[in-house]
Design a protein around this nucleic acid. Structure first.
Lengths: 206, 206, 206, 206
DNA sequence: TCCTAAGCGAGACGGTACGTCCAGTCTTCGT
DNA sequence: ACGAAGACTGGACGTACCGTCTCGCTTAGGA
């Protein structure tokens, strides 16, 4: 047929490997099982045997994909904490409030809350997991927050020359600190107090 | 708070237990061994056998006092992070700067830094350990910091009606957040930025 | 019924178990290590750790096969005391003498002697071990001895209507009794005395 | 002072200073507890702690008297197997039958039977216990039996020049062998068969 | 249609740490 | 000075988990 594109042959260069291909079903089942188990028993009581059994999979099938418990746990955790919307309400105050509420929800949901605890335990023990989390879940959130701040500076709501990392940590640090360390209430009052304080501290100089 | 007065001699009615009393020497030796080993090999590679051997003590003697590795580690850490001076430089700014520097040192000292990571892991897993740490090491620091803030309010350097918990978390949260989560620099710049922001945000209203 | 199908050939349905089969090499290595160690350090100083180490095997591999030290020791002993020839010299007297010498050798060999002591201890404590030993090592010897006696009766060297169990115990009991209880000499003189006494006592009535 | 009367010392003969009156009482209580426990749980599961607790005594009090578990167990066992009457019915046959019945009773009584099993286990493991048992319980019975045989020889019921040890072992070995090794019936039929065989085998030559 | 290679579930493998239990000793207090 | 009570060191116990290694079997290309 004239004008028709050349036959796609999309796999021409893909160099098919011989042998039975890896089961995507097993892959997903393992990750799901790992996530469930981290929530149920925590990172420390997590065992590869339990993951394999729960996933209905042999241990070798797990190790074929992730060479250690760490790498598996890191990916399991990464998988459920991905996209975060960057709000755009027109004001820094509105945007920050919305993002803080989002974060609040995450801490307060027992599902993700328990996971977060396990995560911190895992990061404290594994540099690999720490890096994975930092570049994934944490990085994404920070980038979104930073965008909000940058827009605020551009609009003149925040002073120029902001130390973004400082402001980011001032916004997020208190919540994580309460959650992990003091066990105090992680609630609207805290969120609002933090946002207000930051906005006061970094309002344009005049 | 350190130096609390002795309770009103409750020993009067304390029925002496029969049998050989527990050896305080062994107690201390175990704790010391645990601390050494955490520093040497890390929290994860810590084993009860190694602790017992290093302390020159039978394993039963360890387990008689601490039923799990975590409880032992928690107390070991507690022991080296006790007293904290409440500075009094005459200004909130000076006091806070001094306390932040103190905290900074703690995070930067490899010895206590490594402990802190393990500690958070332990707290995430064990409510008991969490309570121990909160009422000990964390509580002491918060109380000292609060005292500084209260003096600042009294002197008119900070606004009245402060939400102390909020301010405390704004001061301390960013440091712990960087240390545990982002892995960013925990340095003078951060400390100074945090103190300045807090002072600006909570300066007297007029 | 003619044309009836062949017997169900039980092996046909023997469902193969999934998973890696147990290693016969490990099995043998453990048994060998156990025997060596019993000989070297005795039954009491025998430890499962030592057996596993000597066999180059994990402890779990040992416990997967033998749930206690006794069952392992029983089988270890069983393994080295298996076949016994049934002599045929033409006379009961000759046959018995030969078998007694064989038994004598067993008691006098330090290797098997030490095992025997431990074995009796184990039998006294465990009905399972007792049954294992009785149906194996003991049973084989009794069957052989009984065959000798039956031939003697057939040849008219022993009286008809023998109580075989009685004669068997008269032949073997004194040796084991000396070995285990009195600690007296288990030697040719004893063996010969026993055989002579039994032949006199059970000679044909006329 | 010479000539002066002795100080009144009112309690001197009244027995019992405080703290010490239980000395002999404790001794017996320990032995009794040991015997009970050997019967209940066997020699292997016997623990010094259990003995001390059962006896209402401190462990040190036990070790003050017996330096090891072995020595205590040996004495405990010895204590209940002491005297045995030497019968004198006028004939070897009658005497032996009576003694065999006595032995039979011992094996068949569950109380002493269980103890015997533990005993053999203990002898197999401890040369000290073996010696104690041989010179005590076993020795006494053998001496009694020997006396019976000697009288039989004197009366002409048995041939001269008997190998007493041989005859003793022929009489007693089969019973102990059945009890310990084969698990066969230890009954009147066996006893009678043994006695008859021995009398036939060692009857006077003519 | 068969062959070859890699996948699969199952579970045994060597190792290491766990938390418990005992033997035999030592230390406290009470009598 | 002896008693009960119980903590002490040391070391074996039997269990659990890690990461690896077989088993017998499926599942795909390529011959």
């Amino acid at each position: 047929m004239p004008g028709s594109p050349p036959p796609p042959a999309p796999e021409v260069n893909v160099a098919r490997k011989p042998g039975r291909p890896r089961s995507e079903e097993a892959h997903g089942a393992i990750l799901d099982a790992a996530i469930q188990l981290i929530r149920e028993v925590g990172y420390d009581a997590l065992t590869m045997d339990a993951i394999a059994t729960r996933a209905g999979v042999g241990k070798a099938t797990v190790y074929r994909r992730w060479s250690t418990k760490e790498t598996l746990a890191a990916e399991a955790v990464e998988r459920i904490m991905r996209a975060i919307p960057v709000p755009d309400t027109g004001t820094v105050d509105g945007d920050l409030r919305r993002m803080m509420r989002n974060t609040l929800d995450m801490y307060r949901d027992p599902a993700s809350g328990a996971l977060l605890s396990g995560l911190v335990a895992a990061m404290a023990r594994s540099e690999l997991i720490a890096r994975t989390i930092r570049s994934g879940f944490v990085g994404v959130r920070r980038a979104a927050l930073r965008q909000v701040l940058e827009r605020g500076v551009a609009r003149g709501e925040l002073r120029k020359g902001l130390d973004y990392d400082l402001v980011l940590d001032l916004l997020v640090g208190p919540l994580s600190y309460r959650f992990l360390i003091t066990g105090g209430p992680v609630d609207e009052r805290l969120a609002r107090g933090v946002v207000d304080a930051v906005l006061r501290a970094f309002a344009p100089k005049d």
